[in-house]
Design a protein around this nucleic acid. Sequence first.
DNA 1: TTCATAGTTAAGTGCAGAATGAACTATTGC
DNA 2: GCAATAGTTCATTCTGCACTTAACTATGAA
Lengths: 224, 224
Amino acid sequence: MEDQFIKTASLIGDPTRASILWTLMDGRAFTATELAVSVNTSPQNISMHLGKLLDADLLCVEKQGRHKYYRFSNKEVAYALEAMASLVPKPVVASKNKTYPPIKFCRTCYDHLAGKIGVALTDSLLEQKIIVNQNNTFEISSDGEKWFSDFGINLEEAQKQKRIFLKPCLDWSERRNHIAGSIGTLLFNKMLKEDWLRKTENSRAITVTGKGEKELLKYFKIVV
Amino acid sequence: MEDQFIKTASLIGDPTRASILWTLMDGRAFTATELAVSVNTSPQNISMHLGKLLDADLLCVEKQGRHKYYRFSNKEVAYALEAMASLVPKPVVASKNKTYPPIKFCRTCYDHLAGKIGVALTDSLLEQKIIVNQNNTFEISSDGEKWFSDFGINLEEAQKQKRIFLKPCLDWSERRNHIAGSIGTLLFNKMLKEDWLRKTENSRAITVTGKGEKELLKYFKIVV
DNA sequence: TTCATAGTTAAGTGCAGAATGAACTATTGC
DNA sequence: GCAATAGTTCATTCTGCACTTAACTATGAA
């Protein structure tokens, strides 16, 4: 197992390949040429690197005419890369009234918000005391109830639904919970409806619209 | 951010450093010389590599006399490495009545079992139909109730406790739930009491005893 | 058919950075 | 004090593997 791990680590660790993976991290599929441009290297070189990533099953290809679309072959890859990204040295802390770091990854995890946006959103809800953490369970504060109704979400209706109303959902580090349950879904759907977010075809990725960018900053201090 | 990510990736990706990190993955702290032996290289070389890992804040040191003990500086590092380890190409599936792959990492996550052992344990409980997944909530089957009482765990008592009785707790990939809540704690404590597992000092890591090794194989088909 | 674009394969080169050698400091034990 | 062990620093060497040059196949458009 150890040498397997080392192989995988060196595979990811090459600067050019790391850059390829970084580019693919938004969930979309890219052609070889697009990647060559994005990574700033030659087509041959990209081809070589993509070959290695394919061999290791980190990527998969889909052929469309004379194009080949490369993307992550499974979500474990995205998770691993995010976990690695979380290791980059923290910048010296900026200000008290902080905005959250730019979001690169935006995925849907089942039907609740996952990825960085989910985490940042949860952090913000907690900080604004819209939800509070009580013995590792999230509860909606009385202020929060008002907030949700202002936001256009009917809590009574949500409460009726069978599934768990509000629960922390562990992302790849217990430090970073993001909300799940019907509240997560409601928030997510609301944002889709208001056109803050859009689903993309052929991918689990969602993109943030210009409107969403502004609103996410306004409501949650999230910098996309 | 991208070049930061690339730097971190290449840092981890060097074979020697990957091997160092792999060694440290069991949660213990190692001296420079121990690592040099384990990684099979010279003291100077280890020193150089450890220096780089320290700079990037992936490791931290503690000086004790003329020794220096190196370990992960935070659990994010362990998580990232585990996530990377999960990317190693799956071996061709062995047998139907499978045993789980060897466990390298064994940590306590708050007070429930985390890391590979937690995941493997949960997989096994699910496979033995001791617990069943119903709409993303774990429930104890009727067979399971008998199993727990045979195992020496009093379910009625657990149920009395306030905290959530049984819930999936997401590890770094939604494919890999491990159980949390009072059941997780009960199992964990039982294993400590029966001396299957032992806590180590100065570390969150727990070690599996010889007895534990046998019993984990017997009860859960987990190969430590 | 011809030209352009997309991508791959093979052989040879070059260099970043890992490993080595030698000389150093620091702590422990006698 | 001296010897032994633990670890570091710096200058030098060396090498794996990324990258290049060049020639190739495949699809699409005119």
